[in-house]
Design a protein around this nucleic acid. Structure first.
Length: 345
DNA sequence: AATGATAGCAACCGCTCGGCG
DNA sequence: CCGCCGAGCGGTTGCTATCAT
């Protein structure tokens, strides 16, 4: 049996809001607030709208200081880094970007940022393909070569995988979906899913196969995470959100966060600790096993992973920026993503 | 100039969570 | 403790604008 509808569907208007409706909603909320009850709000105002619709309209469009479009490079980096750290928790990401809404960020990620990254990946894949082949021919070995100019900003990772070539299979196309990002990030941060077990062990030969790489990283890595104001104070209070109480994060902080060199955005660490990153939907990034078992097991015990750790799973210290890291790793990725063995044997 | 394809965005849907009786 | 209800969230849909042919 389904859930009872939140409103009388037959008597509510759907679709785009008219200026009159906007004006009614805005003026009422500015004068009286939401009253803590969105469901009752449209009746009070005389709007034939669902309460949820009113809430959404206010949060995403009508409330003060909303910014639309024109995302800066810094914002790109923050979104990218937080997405990779905590997944598609758009409301949390939005809380770090003054004037941005979760819906806006979600749309921006889905329609532009993701494509932007993947588009660059494709370009560099092609560039690398040609230069790599040349170098490979010069050196006369079978290992793919990462161009020096893509290595020099990341001295920490070079030992990371010279992965065994992945036998060609007719699975997903290159760089055009979540899977390619996931594959990339798996290689960035290690191996989490069962079907990549070989790579996992190759990257961490000192650990037996039955030891979770994740857990190992919990043990090995300590990230300096500090916080000031608990984000809960903001997130729990709608009015505070409206007042645009934001946290002191800028592009640099976002990048430092990635590098594990600085604190997480104020409050985020604490918030995440009390409300661990939901990784549902991040399977494509981290692997089902990671999402479904390992992380959750860790949360279920005292072994809590925080965002800093999560980030450290994925990004190496010393990397210049999120996009750069992705590009950088992609160059390695590309070498193995090619169908070196054209077709099943 | 017309038409189809694609991108971008606003809004909706349905699920989960937490508060409350 | 349990069930109900509303808020909040993320995923998805559908409309509109823009671009390419």
């Amino acid at each position: 049996m389904g859930r009872a509808p939140c409103c009388d569907k037959a008597n509510v208007k759907k679709g785009p809001w008219s200026p009159e409706e906007d004006a009614k909603l805005k003026s009422y909320i500015e004068q009286h607030g939401t009253g803590g009850n969105w469901i009752a709000l449209p009746q009070k105002i005389g709007l034939k709208r669902c309460g949820k619709s009113c809430r959404l309209r206010w949060l995403n469009y009508l409330r003060p200081n909303i910014k639309h479009g024109g995302f800066s490079e810094e914002e790109d980096n923050i979104i990218c880094s937080l997405y990779i750290s905590i997944g598609s928790r758009w409301s949390i990401i939005a809380a770090q970007l003054p004037g941005r809404t979760d819906n806006d960020i979600k749309n921006y990620w889905n329609t532009r940022l993701k494509k932007k990254l993947l588009g660059k990946q494709r370009k560099e894949q092609q560039a690398r393909r040609s230069s790599g082949l040349k170098q490979e021919m010069k050196r006369g070995n079978g290992n793919p070569v990462v161009p020096a100019d893509n290595n020099n900003q990341n001295p920490y990772w070079p030992e990371l995988p010279i992965l065994a070539p992945i036998p060609y299979s007719n699975h997903e196309p290159h760089f055009n979906d979540h899977a390619s990002i996931r594959k990339l990030l798996i290689k960035l941060g290690g191996k989490f899913s069962d079907d990549d077990q070989v790579n996992h062990n190759a990257m961490n030969p000192q650990f037996p196969a039955d030891v979770s790489y994740t857990q190992q990283l919990y043990d090995d890595q300590s990230i300096n995470v500090s916080s000031s104001a608990p984000m809960e104070e903001t997130l729990d209070d709608t009015d505070t959100q409206f007042a645009q109480t934001q946290y002191d994060i800028d592009g640099a902080a976002g990048l430092q966060m990635l590098q594990g060199q600085s604190s997480f955005p104020a409050g985020l660490e604490q918030m995440v600790s009390s409300n661990p990153p939901r990784l549902d939907g991040l399977e494509f990034l981290l692997g089902d096993d990671m999402v479904n078992n390992r992380i959750r097991t860790a949360y279920g015990t005292e072994s809590m992973i925080d965002c800093g750790e999560m980030t450290s799973l994925i990004f190496p210290p010393g990397a210049s920026n999120c996009e750069g890291i992705i590009q950088q790793r992609l160059l390695q990725e590309c070498a193995f993503d090619e169908p070196r063995y054209p077709g099943p044997l």
